[in-house]
Design a protein around this nucleic acid. Structure first.
Lengths: 158, 158
DNA sequence: CGCTTGCTTGGAGCGCACTCCAAGGTTTTA
DNA sequence: TAAAACCTTGGAGTGCGCTCCAAGCAAGCG
């Protein structure tokens, strides 16, 4: 068997988020050949960044039209979704390239990839905890400012 | 009245976290005069970074010894704690400098600071949500890998 | 006294993640 | 068919957040 890499994110694409402009919908598998500017619309990345991702080995090989222009497929978009998520965690691009290499090398890298995913999961948990910590500090400060505001107001009133 | 800036983080200093080397304890207010290398030990920042923070206006004025060496106080450490927390949220240093300027300008910037804190709080909430999202993706992938591992194992067994 | 250690400064350098440019070929629209 | 819009490449440039360097001053010690 083959360990698939892209768990097709059917729910992710156009509908979900509440920020940014509404992205165009994907086409069904089979008719999925997107130009680079369509991928720009779909992902919010720039064309520069997409080409750069390819240069540094962060993308798998992308299909080309008969004249050499890129034609992205749905699984490429799935991969870009994952990359976008990992980017939000602060993972260095070099680490993602490493993961991409493992995927390209085939099934025998299965264990290493698994370990990498689990380690990343731990990192994310840590970062969430840090942010919770920061949130607590901010909340305490905000409460303090609210109280101080009250005090200033009553000072003016007296 | 004066809106105080540093809500003394008595619990924060040496005890709390579970990562990194155990930092030296602070001294009580009144005997709190730390050299730059002591602050390095206490915060984990480098001396370079501490001086750079000062140059760009991220720090308030730091006391000096009679020979011109920096002598940090507990409230400077409190400020550095806050900066460290905000840094973890991904807030640009320039924004922190802006906040520091507001503090230096005095009480009449109270409202602006308050709004800034509330906006930052919102950002942190957003980032936590993004990380939760990423965590879900990772968990799904990890489950998938675990299942695939099972399948590979039974394949080998058969 | 010389030696080591630690601190000072302005300014230069670095690594990361893009971001853009120039020069040219392709595709679409009018 | 001509103009406008879009795509290609290698390489150079940018902004951020540090990070380091050189040259010099100050304190402690045998």
């Amino acid at each position: 068997m083959t360990v698939m890499e892209t768990t097709s994110a059917t729910s992710t694409a156009s509908g979900g988020g509440c920020a940014g402009p509404p992205r165009k919908p994907r086409r069904p598998d089979g008719q999925d050949r997107y130009t680079i500017s369509e991928v720009v619309d779909l992902t919010g990345l720039t064309a520069h960044t997409l080409r750069w991702y390819e240069r540094i080995g962060l993308m798998p090989h992308i299909d080309r039209s008969h004249t050499g222009q890129r034609r992205y497929r749905n699984r490429d978009l799935d991969w870009l979704d994952l990359v976008g998520k990992l980017r939000l965690t602060g993972m260095p691009v070099a680490d993602m390239v490493r993961y991409a290499e493992l995927v390209r090398e085939g099934d025998h890298t299965y264990t290493e990839r698994f370990e990498l995913l689990k380690a990343t999961r731990q990192d994310v948990l840590t970062r969430i905890a840090e942010l919770q910590d920061t949130l607590d500090v901010l909340d305490r400060k905000i409460d303090f400012y609210a109280d101080a505001g009250q005090a200033l107001a009553s000072e003016r009133a007296s």
